[in-house]
Amino acid sequence: MKTFKINNSETTQALGQRLGQIVSPGDVILLDGDLGAGKTTFTKGIALGLGIQRNIKSPTFTIIREYKTGRLPLYHMDVYRLEDGGGDELGLDEYFNGNGVCVIEWSQFVANELPKNHLTISFKRDDSNLDSTNRTITITASDAHYEGMMAQL
């Protein structure tokens, strides 16, 4: 486990960008945390690290957005709307077993569909002030592959 104290969105994005530079085909990155905690900002950084220049938007209503113009395809998923289930009908295995990188916000809502091995990144506000940008980002690896990635951050 690795922990980072972050105090602005630029640092959040820069950490994501570093991760985007070292991800491999088939990597699965889980982003968990409260609304507005920095998950999409982090994903924007991953996209930059992959060389994707398109504007990255949260796929809250579309559930999955595909970006294929970088070093690897980026599959950005926001499964918040699947809070009551339904992830089994999305064909997530095709994404997980593909040649891109999957970034999943609110992964707890599709926990039964997730591959065993992944990198989990948790975002936590450091205080109750909603305008504050102070966050703790905790990264947990499920296996040696992801531990190696975590060590490079």
Rank of each mutant, 00 (worst) to 15 (best):
M1H: 11
K2A: 03
T3M: 07
F4C: 11
F4L: 15
S9K: 08
E10G: 07
T11I: 05
G16S: 08
L19Y: 11
L19K: 05
L19S: 04
V23H: 04
D27W: 03
V28D: 05
V28W: 00
I29Q: 05
L31D: 03
G33S: 10
G33W: 08
D34E: 14
L35V: 10
G36M: 07
A37M: 09
T41K: 08
K44F: 12
G45T: 00
L48S: 09
G49V: 13
L50M: 00
R54Q: 15
I56P: 00
T62G: 11
T62H: 13
T62F: 00
I63S: 02
I64R: 01
G70E: 04
R71V: 00
L72N: 03
L72H: 09
L72V: 08
P73D: 02
Y75D: 05
H76D: 10
H76M: 07
M77E: 06
V79Y: 05
V79H: 08
R81M: 13
E83C: 04
D84C: 12
G86Q: 13
G86N: 10
G87F: 01
D88F: 12
E89K: 15
D93S: 15
E94I: 01
F96W: 01
N97L: 15
N99F: 10
G100M: 05
V101Y: 04
V101M: 08
C102L: 11
V103P: 02
I104W: 00
W106M: 03
W106H: 11
W106Y: 05
S107E: 02
V110I: 12
E113T: 13
L114Q: 08
L114N: 02
P115M: 09
N117W: 04
L119G: 01
S122D: 03
S122I: 07
D126A: 09
D127C: 12
D127K: 03
N129V: 15
L130C: 08
D131Q: 15
D131L: 10
S132V: 09
S132G: 11
T133H: 14
T133C: 13
R135A: 05
R135W: 04
I137F: 09
I137D: 00
T140C: 05
T140I: 12
A141D: 08
S142L: 12
S142I: 06
S142C: 00
S142P: 12
A144M: 15
H145W: 09
H145A: 02
A151K: 11
A151H: 12
